[in-house]
Nucleic acid binder design. Structure first.
Lengths: 216, 216
DNA sequence: ACAGTTATACTACTATGCAAGTATCCTGTC
DNA sequence: GACAGGATACTTGCATAGTAGTATAACTGT
């Protein structure tokens, strides 16, 4: 059971983050906490909290009166993949050395669910697949045993995931992706750093290629 | 002129961040917004905002009632240097290609001020040197032209800087540091990516070595 | 008609009040 | 003496009101 209930402030944050990363707002568009709170039907206090957190993520920027949308471009996304290519291999190496049996089991469950949702063809299966993708990666980051790597990579992965959710399609890639996850998992379970690094990088290169093909 | 005045919320955030990164609080120590607001003599509202932003930075964590200190270990710091070693060379390459004359001028000013503060022996010169160090690096990140690189590297540099401020000494390193900055600057001014990358990495390795020697 | 000044309206920031949930401590009973 | 149950006090979350500062627009005077 989670400690804190899902607060209105959290909901506002999640929704705004999703909308910004999905490109719902134009760069430079002005947002005021009053208008937002009126639109969402909540008081200004939780909206303020959400705005401050989004500023902390460099998704919004102070503009004197209100805040302006900073948002993310396609090039930013490709840069994020480049950064992950520099880091995620090393994180996978560490994870292969440090991963515990319990963590392997959790990753196994995430993988099984990913297979499960891949087989079905329900309307929300795509979202569920992406959720399990996030879960798998975050478990690997945690398994690296490094808070620094985990912090940076979680942040990047979360942004990329929400960006990709905006442009769904590519069900084919889902199956490739889960198979690549399997390869990573096997390397981690075998505690083989070299294979883990190679598998992680291969997975990333493929994901980046898919991203690069989009929106041209 | 800045848009937003320095608010109480910002001050609380800065102070708490500094104190946490300086190791003033023990890992797992419990903080409540009420106690903090009473201690600081302000209302709970700005304290709440500061706490939420610090949670966003993974420096605090929800604990049901209040938040607990997560903080940063020496090993985390070394990992952050490792991450920077993976990224900052590439950022320097890009900066060498993209830096504008105006940006070079700003970096020149930061460097000059750093020289200036190095020569004096005033009590606050150490802080000023570190401020100029931050400024120089952040200008380089911005010059890379990549929001993704800049976001990640700024975050890392800021944390490292506040951590190092806790353990001042090593005036000797200040002069080496500014000389290494000069080397980076010259490479950027010459728009030479190879030299910029090499200079940035050399600078980082030296800084990491100093960090590694500390607190053993 | 244009410029300068004033007034109005809107912005964010902080404080406080109120409600809901939870942990703790005390008391009563077995 | 130990355990269970309830009351109390403390916690955060949300809303709102008051304040200060600013930008804009309107109005007046030249």
């Amino acid at each position: 059971m989670e400690h804190r209930n899902i607060s209105i402030a959290d909901q506002v944050f999640e929704q705004l983050e999703r909308d910004i990363l999905a490109g719902k707002y134009a760069r430079g568009e002005l947002l005021s906490e009053q208008r937002l709170s009126a639109e969402l039907g909540v008081s200004r206090t939780p909206v303020r909290e959400a705005i401050r957190r989004l500023e902390q993520e460099n998704l919004l920027e102070d503009a004197g009166r209100g805040v302006v949308i900073v948002g993310i471009t396609h090039e930013d996304m490709l840069d994020m993949y480049e950064i992950r290519l520099q880091l995620e291999g090393l994180a996978a190496r560490r994870a292969a050395e440090n991963v515990s049996e319990e963590q392997l089991q959790e990753m196994r469950e995430a993988l099984d669910l990913q297979h499960f949702y891949c087989d079905r063809e329900r309307s929300d299966s795509s979202d569920q697949i992406k959720n399990m993708d996030s879960r798998f990666h975050e478990l690997m980051y945690a398994a690296s045993g490094s808070k620094a790597y985990s912090d940076v990579l979680c942040r990047l992965h979360k942004k990329i995931a929400k960006y990709r959710k905006a442009s769904v399609r590519k069900h084919s890639r889902a199956e490739e992706s889960v198979n690549e996850h399997e390869a990573i998992f096997e390397a981690l379970a075998a505690h083989d750093p070299d294979r883990a690094e190679a598998a992680a990088l291969s997975h990333l290169r493929n994901a980046r290629a898919t991203m690069a093909e989009m929106e041209l």
